[in-house]
Design a protein around this nucleic acid. Sequence first.
DNA 1: AAACCCT
DNA 2: AGGGTTTATCAGCGG
DNA 3: CCGCTG
Length: 309
Amino acid sequence: MQQETQTRNGAVKLNGHQVQLTNQSKIYWPEEKITKGELVDYYLSVADIMLPHLKNRPMSLHRFPNGIKGVSFYQKDLDVKNIPDWLKTVAIHASSTGKDVDYLLCNNEATLAYMANLGCIEVNPWLSRTTNLDNPDYIVLDLDPEDISFKHVIDTALCIRDILEEMDIGSYVKTSGSTGLHIYIPVACKYEYEVCRFFAQHVATEAHERMPDVTSITRAKAQRKHKVYIDYLQNSFGQTVAAPYSARPKPGATVSAPLLWKEVTGKLKISDYHIGNMHKRLDKVGDLWKEIHKQRNDLKAIIKNMDQN
DNA sequence: AAACCCT
DNA sequence: AGGGTTTATCAGCGG
DNA sequence: CCGCTG
């Protein structure tokens, strides 16, 4: 006897390729009874808007073969010999091992469906693209509350936006889909990771000076208790951040949702954005991050002033 | 590893 | 018998 | 989850 609820299989034709879908009825979010099939459907429903944000970015796969409560594992290196030949990968040299790692690229909806079927609930792209692997398109600040109310995350985010605005630097904000917010500063591949990280640290430090009681910028976990941790260390070669519109392996099937800055208020709730309602929001507001690549913030003046350290 | 097939 | 190929509602592991 | 190994 088969467990019919776990085995429904099938295939879809996307971008001219046959994509095998397995275990579409398997429960991935037990509390909400959301299935893997619904995860695949979600990604296909947002593909048009999401894919431009993924194009030519190496992917780290975070796979949850048994849903959000099951054991997960990370996979970067694909076995190129034994995956469908239509998948695109890029070989990147890993200095630590001296070997090449074949990273998956997700440039079409067939690949997005393939990834979701592998149990990739999240989509985790690099900050840089294959065309310019050493130069990220944007700088990322990751705000994470550690045993502190979410309203302090909002205050911290607005403080950071103000600091950037004072430097005439535009920024984008989204929910992380987990507990915090992500702020992106587009720089159009003008700087290498080290410069980006340095700038991010500068902004984080300034925010911490303005809000010393509720923020922390130190790696040590103990010093982050009851603080909003401003993580600037993600701006490094090979690091990833959950992409805009990425689902998250969290209760409520939340997604990382691009926001307008004016939506960052006391009313903001991360749980309001999930795979069940994102499509409706996109019909209404479209891609709020559509222009992110057109903005080129110039950090030159600021970096020069930071140089004496 | 075992079953199966072909000289 | 000796070699090559296929199968297993496989099990175990690694990514 | 999926494909390789025994």
